[in-house]
């Protein structure tokens, strides 16, 4: 148990370094510089060079890289001239929105997927269910978002189209704030969650069918256990284990989906920050966001490992 933890954490360091270095190289190889992006639209001789000097981007790449590494070791991600703030502050401001969005969506996908996957795991039929799940999984996230907006916001007028709060009537009190946030985030979470839900449902169904064919299920049935008990108490936990491992690998997709959802619903999240920063050649910010995304994936995998250990007595004893 402890060995696994230590191993994971040791591996996290090179992982993050590789991710950040790839981002560093990409951001600095990109045509154009932050000075060109900030330099404005009308010709002003010398301005681009002056901005580059102020920002320090006119120095050799190796020097910038080493300096960046040294700062990174101290937990300093650099300063964004575009946003006039340290990168850590920029990321901190947006982390909450993206976390709420992705975690809620993951939870929604898990619950819905497990439920519907288990419900359709019957021996006969179910091909329609598979096709439906596959279709939901196959829909691009922005289409799901657009359809949800057309039905629930534009059509029925139940929920807002965009944003995190209503600027005309800022919510009052904690309860009011929470209710307002929930109203604004309902569609984004649904759009992001539905994209992942098909995947979970398909897998749950497949695993459960596998488990339902096993001997212990027949035994349970022979003992007179009801069908629901057999599925939920006996087969599902066993089917869940390999599923968990796969879910860890979906974090990347979730982060990518968040980018689209944040754009479509105009939410201030990390995905938007990455795109805005990329266009402005805001190199420290770009690298910072990639680093945080890689960290999220590492942490998610760690959490999945721990959860698996906790759920599976065989592995617990083996370690």
């Amino acid at each position: 148990m402890r060995r696994l933890l230590i191993r994971r954490l040791l591996l996290a360091v090179p992982t993050l370094l590789v991710a950040a270095t790839i981002a560093f190289v990409l951001a600095h190889l990109a045509p154009g510089s932050p000075a060109v992006a900030l330099g404005g639209d009308f010709g002003a001789p010398g301005l681009v060079e002056e901005i580059a000097r102020i920002q320090g981007t006119d120095r050799p790449l190796a020097v910038i890289y080493v300096e960046w590494l040294l700062r990174l070791a101290r937990g300093d991600l650099g300063f964004s001239f575009r946003a006039q703030a340290p990168v850590t502050a920029l990321i901190g401001d947006r982390l909450g929105v993206t976390l709420v969005l992705t975690l809620s969506a993951a939870l929604l996908a898990m619950l819905l997927g497990l439920l519907l996957g288990a419900a359709t795991a019957a021996r006969k039929g179910g091909r329609a269910a598979v096709a439906t799940f596959a279709l939901v999984q196959a829909l691009p996230v922005y289409l799901v978002a657009q359809l949800l907006v057309l039905v629930f916001a534009v059509g029925l007028g139940l929920l807002p189209i965009q944003g995190l709060e209503n600027p005309r009537a800022p919510p009052e009190g904690l309860a009011g704030l929470l209710a307002d946030r929930a109203r604004h985030l309902a569609l984004p979470i649904a759009a992001l969650g539905l994209g992942q839900f098909g995947f979970v449902a398909l897998l749950t169904r497949a695993r459960l069918r596998e488990e339902l064919g096993r001997l212990y299920v027949t035994t349970a049935r022979a003992r007179g256990a009801g069908e629901a008990t057999v599925r939920l108490r006996h087969a599902l936990p066993n089917a869940l284990l390999p599923l968990l491992a796969l879910f860890g690998s979906r974090v990347g997709a979730l982060v990518g989906g968040a980018l689209v959802v944040e754009t479509a619903f105009a939410l201030p999240g990390l995905g938007r920050l990455a795109v805005t920063a990329a266009i402005a050649r805001d190199q420290p910010t770009v690298i910072g966001v990639v680093l945080v995304a890689a960290l999220a994936i590492v942490l998610a995998n760690l959490a999945v490992d721990l959860l698996q250990l906790w759920l599976d007595p065989r592995q617990r004893e083996a370690s």
């Binding site: 992982t15 991710a19 790839i22 982060v255 990518g256 990455a274 994936i297």
Partner: peptide, 11 residues
């Protein structure tokens, strides 16, 4: 496997 693939593609 821990790289944020889609994010890198966007960049």
């Amino acid at each position: 496997a821990s790289l944020p693939t889609l994010l890198l593609a966007v960049l």
